[in-house]
Design a protein around this nucleic acid. Structure first.
Lengths: 347, 347
DNA sequence: CTTGGCACTCGCTGACCGAGAGTGCCAGAC
DNA sequence: GTCTGGCACTCTCGGTCAGCGAGTGCCAAG
């Protein structure tokens, strides 16, 4: 009894089941795949596979269905990531290159992934934990208010309005604003968020009594923004695809939609990538720690500019999914997005 | 045969049906509501209501269910918008007041609406068609690049990076940037988008030959941003609530989710408010022009800072919904959001 | 105009049954 | 030792049928 053939049988079962979405029996199997043995032999192999927990029969006299463990083996040992056609590659890059800013890149990416894989797409906003401050701009506004614009190296922009409690429109005020602007940029520009935050706090103490309240207001708002922005965001698309795959979710579409609205847990999920961030990570069914998503699989990959993986993206679908092509799409999109971010990075 | 009583019966049917989600029969009706007449009388009234097309029997021997027209009459003539409890009002305002910026206001609003009504919430971003430019800031970046930050009176911020093709780091460059900054703010600050766009174009012609290319680059990017931002956006939450109401959607949850992903059509829907923008607008089932949403009702209302209604928000749910309380929630939220925007407006 | 009565309609439920698909196992072939 | 054909068995699925119950429409009387 060759182990090899048993795995061939498993692969055939997975492929057929993904294709037909019906339990596959021994007879149908030998017909569709030419594995040079008879149905009876296949049945023996199936019995063993079932013993190993890789497949499972929904009821005594039905065909077999892969278990989560079965899919796992399939993904790890039995499938190669299918390369995309050159047409697809071109379509992807063209679609993404039309983006005008970061929001647009993320928006286009998530839509693209959803329509490409016909599943739910999930894209995490580039995380700012490793981001650096590019520039901080101050814009006086009204009599005593100041708008603070924080520009991040990824191209993201955050703004806050603070009340300095001082008139800013006279000469004194203008001098103050300009001095604060210079000083905070001196300590914070080009510096990672975490470092910037501590340096800015120190700056307050070094400031003259007279200007300290104004400086304090600005720094505290900036501190907020730095922390606030570290709170990560995620964008979804293609929820309708869940309904299309209704057969795979016996009445459990509700919990899935609910889980998808819990952006925090989604982010945690996306954060737990596999060992190698350059590889596509697949989490199958019950491997998934989130309640409600245990009938789904998540195919994800990190992306980011330069060598850093600043965030992840992926798709979520029924465990019965076409892993090779889904993985190919996710990988291709992740790479293109990284490229795009690289290009914009330099500017 | 009093017309009054017939309407009472209609109201009772709507209320019961919304409550139980089962066709309501004459007997159950007289038991639950004390309408001082017998079941037989109610049956006669029901027959008439059916003739008028306000209710409908799913099959010969079942109870009655309101039609879209029936709900229409109910909403227009038989129900008063139920006032919210003071606790609810307080919860709403507290939840919304924690918002730090416009994104956050919109985000909180949509979540709040969804959880309040337990339905799908839809919030349109404040439209920028009537917005004005508050300030334009230029930030030199790298050798010849310039980041343009456009600040809108609603608090929204847009940024673009352009290549001016000229060195900006020397004294000449700084002078150029500062001159451009002053001049564009002179013509555009405080001015509505449409006007700003034309004035800015004129500005290019009035610029010296030497500085013209740089000015042109800035103005063209700004023009893009102004148009781009006019493209409106919409945010959703609570899709999971659709699944909860599964009984109301015989297998048609897919088309609804699909329709919800068509943000363009959603925006068009939200745009078509009723006559009085200060009133809650209700679009019931087939009154709704969008394919896929014809088993749903949309309860919406405009909101915005000052007297202008710059955008709308609302919730979408099954036609079998509790209109009075839903309308109350939508109205309350719309008002609070308007207030919040008003407050931030002044700063 | 209302009411009680009554015959009628129709969907829902559960039981039953036959067909079909698939399995497990065994005995024999290679 | 491994593979294969055969066979009895199991279980789901779809269809049919009867009984039940809710609800209706209509009618004749109050």
């Amino acid at each position: 009894m060759s182990e090899d053939r048993r795995l061939m049988v498993l692969r055939a079962i997975v492929q057929d089941y993904v294709h037909t979405s019906e339990p596959v029996g021994s007879k149908a199997l030998v017909e569709r795949h030419h594995l040079g043995v008879s149905a009876a032999t296949v049945r023996n192999d199936m019995a063993l596979l079932e013993e190993e927990g890789l497949i499972h029969a929904p009821h005594t006299s039905a065909g077999r269905v892969p278990t989560d463990a079965g899919y796992r083996v399939f993904v790890d040992r039995l499938s190669a990531v299918k390369p995309l056609s050159s047409g697809e590659r071109r379509a992807i890059s063209q679609f993404l290159e039309g983006a005008v800013d970061l929001d647009d890149v993320v928006d286009r990416t998530v839509r693209l992934l959803a329509s490409l894989t016909r599943q739910v797409a999930v894209v995490q906003y580039p995380s700012l934990t490793r981001s650096t401050v590019r520039h901080i701009e101050l814009v006086p506004m009204g009599s005593s208010h100041l708008m603070i614009v924080l520009i991040v190296n990824t191209g993201r922009v955050e703004q806050r309005v603070v009340d300095t409690g001082r008139a800013l429109s006279d000469a004194d005020g203008e001098a103050l604003v300009s001095s604060i602007r210079t000083r905070i940029n001196e300590v914070a520009a080009g510096v990672p968020f975490t470092v910037a935050a501590t340096r800015l706090r120190r700056l307050v103490d070094e400031t003259d009594e007279t200007d300290r309240t104004a400086m304090k207001a600005v720094v505290s708002a900036l501190g907020d923004a730095l922390v606030e922005e570290r709170e990560e965001r995620v964008v979804l698309a293609g929820q309708a695809n869940l309904a299309r795959a209704g057969a795979d979710f016996p009445r459990t579409i509700g919990p899935i939609l609910e889980a998808l609205e819990e952006h925090v847990t989604l982010l945690r999920l996306l954060g737990q990538l596999g060992d190698d961030p350059d590889l596509v990570s697949v989490r199958i069914g019950s491997e998934n720690p989130v309640t409600g998503l245990q009938t789904t699989s998540l195919v994800s990959m990190g992306y980011g500019s330069g060598s850093e993986r600043v965030a992840s993206l992926g798709v979520l679908g029924p465990t019965r999914m076409d892993y090779p092509t889904t993985m190919a799409s996710v990988r291709a999109v992740a790479r293109y997005v990284s490229e795009i971010l690289d290009d914009n990075q330099g500017t």
